[in-house]
Design a protein around this nucleic acid. Structure first.
Length: 449
RNA sequence: GUGGGUGUAGCUCAGCUGGUAGAGCAUCGCGUUGUGGUCGCGAGGGUCGCGGGUUCAAGUCCCGUCACUCACCCCA
């Protein structure tokens, strides 16, 4: 049976996985530093709950059923589908556990999600998202909308990657604006304007007119979409367009508050960008997208927004706001371009050599002593010639080889195989430099962006 | 789902107008039973994606199919 990769289901080599784990560690630590506890939700939800929550995501949902299911049970099984994001399951989780949670409730969630779309560069059918969300009962304070991008900005600052720009908008701005100039189909207009970067202003105007706008309305939409500022000047720019509507004012105030918080706490990380719309249609206010400087064509690496009515049991509504890092897309870019590398392909910092099979217990004892002090190591698989054992370590990037009984005194020696330096050492006291203890994940030069 | 491209060794590919498979890299082994990276020698590994057709003969031409890939759609 021929084995081949399955498109859209990426798998990593050990050295790449080390990079991924480092990223996940940084994300987790930062989320926890901001006080977010973790939850994990099941991989499946009733299809009914998934449907209609994510716009066109409907047709991307993977249904599950038993292979051996007969007609009757197949129908029942097919009511389950794999989740396509972590926000919809979270909303369900909140409703289900509302009695056990304290509000406002915040949580982070790092899990795989699945979407049955055509894979291509940066787009997968199975991928990892890292989400943070805050929900409250009845009302959600607006300052949480400012908190989300601040946490994310901190994550990106700690990772060995090019600068990230978090673009923020508020859907109330285009909504109020469109209504203010007499456009009724807000969602449809938004969808067309969202293509601005891809197809250009002329095509957008063309499509807007085709969708029923007057040429004047189309130009107004383009003028709004063109506004972008790293400070609060976007407010004046919108006002200058001379449109007024209560919803527009609400949106401008809300967005100004978010940008203000960004200017104070994460200078340079955020920008107000009034063309950002987002595809998932449960967003009702603030929306976020994130581009990596120099790789704008890869799309957003981190998105989210505010949703006021996603979680509701009919009596009580739990409005929330959240944002999600596309871990797989980010790694897919960085690894394929060689923008980030791990210093070795194994956690082992030391290879303990074996002189002969009879003395293996001695080597194992040395390894045990090293591990007791937190030094990751492994024992050589064979008592091969030392050249071979060194090469074994070298192939894997293990920086040190430990030679039992190599010292004149009868004690041990340890060799840094990068420099060739070899010194007497005692397994109960020897300590490698801190940077050698764990694999280092660092930014690599990019020859061709 | 729609349209284009590609499909030969683990990887990157060669194989000209059809005559029954090659290179580089990688892997493993050997090179004075004990300290690697260079170098030398050698080995393993391919029903040329799969199925059918044309032909004396197909990796090479034709059809189909599958997979991968790119674009659209949509999105992290």
């Amino acid at each position: 049976m021929k084995i081949s990769p399955i498109s859209g289901f990426p798998e990593y080599l050990p050295s790449q996985r080390i990079v991924e784990q480092h990223f996940l560690d940084v994300i987790r630590e930062t989320f926890e530093l901001h006080g977010y506890p973790s939850i994990e939700t099941r991989a499946v939800e009733p299809v009914e709950r998934l449907l209609g929550k994510g716009g066109d995501a409907d047709k991307e949902i993977y249904g599950i059923r038993r292979l051996a299911a007969d007609e009757a049970t197949a129908a029942a099984d097919s009511e389950l589908g794999l989740h396509f994001d972590l926000t919809v399951p979270f909303a369900r989780y909140v409703l289900e556990n509302a009695g056990h949670l304290s509000f406002p409730f915040r949580r982070y969630q790092i899990q795989k999600v699945w979407r049955g779309e055509r894979p291509q560069e940066g787009r997968y059918r199975e991928f990892t998202q890292a989400d943070i969300d805050v929900v409250d009962v009845g009302e959600l304070a607006p300052h949480f909308e400012a908190e989300m991008p601040l946490v994310i900005a901190e994550v990106f600052r700690k990772l060995p990657i090019p600068p990230m720009v978090i673009q923020v908008n508020n859907r109330k701005i285009p909504e109020g604006f469109y209504r203010g100039i007499g456009i009724e189909d807000v969602a449809g207009t938004l969808r067309i304007v969202d293509k601005l970067d891809k197809i250009g202003p002329d095509k957008v105007a063309e499509q807007l007119v085709a969708a029923g706008c007057t040429p004047e309305q189309a130009q107004q939409c383009l003028a709004l979409a063109g506004i972008r500022s790293a400070d609060l000047s976007f407010v004046e720019q919108v006002r200058a367009l001379g449109v007024s509507h209560p919803t527009l004012d609400e949106g401008l105030d809300a967005l100004a508050a978010v940008i203000r918080a960004g200017m104070d706490n994460a200078p340079g990380a955020m920008v107000a960008d009034l063309k950002i719309a987002r595809g998932l249609d449960y967003y009702t206010g603030t929306v976020y997208e994130t581009q990596l400087a120099g790789y704008e064509s890869w799309g957003s690496f981190c998105s989210g927004g505010r949703y006021d009515s996603l979680a509701s049991d009919g009596k009580t509504t739990y409005p929330g706001v959240g944002i999600s890092i596309g871990v797989s897309r980010l790694l897919g870019l960085l690894l394929s371009k060689g923008l980030v590398t791990a210093s070795r392909s194994t956690p082992a910092a030391v290879l303990v050599a074996v002189n002969d099979e009879e003395s293996r217990p001695t080597s194992v004892g040395i390894a045990t002593a090293l591990r007791q002090r937190g030094i990751p190591c492994e024992v050589a698989p064979k008592p091969a010639k030392f050249g071979k054992q060194i090469r074994y370590a070298e192939r894997r990037g293990i920086p040190y080889v430990w030679f039992p009984g190599a010292a004149e005194s009868g004690g041990d020696q340890v060799k840094d195989i990068r420099s060739g330096q070899q010194d007497d050492a005692d397994a109960s006291t020897w300590q490698p430099p801190a940077e050698d203890l764990r694999p280092q994940v660092t930014a690599g030069a990019d020859p061709s962006p």
